[in-house]
Simulated assay, not measured.
Amino acid sequence: MTTRVLVPQPIAPAGLEVLREAGLETRELDTTDAAELRQAIVDCSGVLVRTAPLPADVLSAAPGLEVVSRHGVGLDAIDTGYCRDHGIRVTFAPESNTVTVAEHTIGLMTAITKNLRTVDAATRAGDFGARSRSYGIELDGKTLGVVGLGRIGRLVAQKARLGFGMRLLGYDAYLPEDAGPEGVHRCALEELLASSDVVTVHVPFTPGSRHVIDAAGLRSMKRAAYLVNCSRGGTVDEAALIDALRDGHLAGAGLDVFETEPLPAGHPLTALDNVLLTPHMAAHSTEALDRMAAHAAEGIVDVLGGREPRWPADRPPVGHRPG
């Protein structure tokens, strides 16, 4: 009997090779449409998902579904409650994109504090005089506040400390007090926001983290501070951020994620000169895409082979199998 794995969106060949070498048949699409997904998933035992949403009404169309594996880290598009209740294992790829996202974060931080977007546009327009008007700041000795001290947040902190000589503050609601990374002073979120020259956000999007940086938090930040967000758009109050950028309370922001994606045409953020925008692609290096595809595929192969996956995003009761 053929065991099928649905791959709703294109992935790197490395992931497909892992699945096929394990004797699994792949059904490859390029869609996020719920109706198409419901039709395609019906006879599948696994799903390797990128950004396609997998709500209960899609998952329930596959009575033999055993595993959903996330191509990346965030699980907010997967109905993990349904999976838990129906014995469907959920795996992800938390070690695949850490380096790439951390590097993207450092890149955004450097670009916005040096006004690179503004001076690039001026130079292209023939305005060489921008060199005497658009000054950046040095990061050396400045304070970086890291909200979320998981793999990515820790690596960003390390690179900022060793590469730029920055002072580090860290906030994490779940990490034990004695488990903070080297060189990071753990503190309350309020202290971090009020004391940091740059704040970078690295928390998963959950009901508890929605607008973890809210309007009051943004206004409590230093005047002329900077914000970087490479986690999820909903972790920052976007409307309040726009206001703080418009009136100059914040000097700038580097954003890879947004509350609505794709970013709608004519969105207020696109009209702001003090914002650098990238299209939710912090994890999209060639190396990370290969790792994400392969690691997500390995999770499916493990579960369907009766083995505990290397990167489980769940831990259901022993012996709980699909009905």
Rank of each mutant, 00 (worst) to 15 (best):
T110S: 09
P63M: 12
N97E: 10
F92C: 12
G126V: 10
I112D: 08
R133F: 01
D57E: 15
D79N: 04
D127F: 04
R89Q: 13
P94Q: 00
A130N: 04
T118A: 14
S69N: 04
T113V: 11
R133T: 07
L59A: 02
S134V: 05
A122E: 10
T105D: 12
S96K: 03
T100D: 03
E66T: 13
V73L: 08
E66I: 10
L75N: 09
A121C: 05
F128W: 15
F92E: 13
D140S: 15
G64C: 06
G107K: 00
V58T: 07
R124K: 12
P63I: 13
L108E: 01
L59F: 02
K114R: 15
L59N: 06
D57C: 01
R84Y: 04
E95D: 15
A102V: 00
R124S: 03
G87C: 09
L108I: 10
G81Q: 15
D140K: 14
G74D: 12
I106A: 04
A61H: 09
G87V: 01
D79Y: 02
A111Q: 06
A61I: 11
L75C: 13
L116H: 08
V101C: 09
D120K: 02
S96W: 05
G107T: 00
I106M: 15
F128K: 01
Y82M: 05
S132C: 09
A125K: 10
H86D: 05
V58G: 08
G74E: 09
L65K: 10
A122P: 03
V101S: 05
T80A: 14
V90F: 00
A122Q: 12
V58A: 11
S96N: 06
S69Q: 11
E95S: 12
A111S: 07
E95V: 11
T118L: 14
L65N: 08
L108G: 03
F128R: 09
D79C: 02
C83E: 09
L65P: 08
V101K: 01
G129E: 06
S69V: 04
V99K: 13
M109S: 04
T123V: 05
I88T: 02
G136C: 10
E66G: 15
P63F: 11
P63W: 12
H104I: 09
T80P: 11
V99Y: 14
H104Y: 03
F128I: 00
T80R: 08
T80K: 13
T100Y: 05
G129P: 06
D85E: 15
Y82P: 04
T105L: 00
V67P: 06
R70E: 00
V99A: 12
G64N: 10
N115H: 10
T105S: 11
L75E: 11
D79G: 06
R70K: 03
I112W: 01
N97A: 15
L108V: 07
H71R: 02
F92Y: 15
A93R: 04
S96L: 01
R84W: 01
P94N: 01
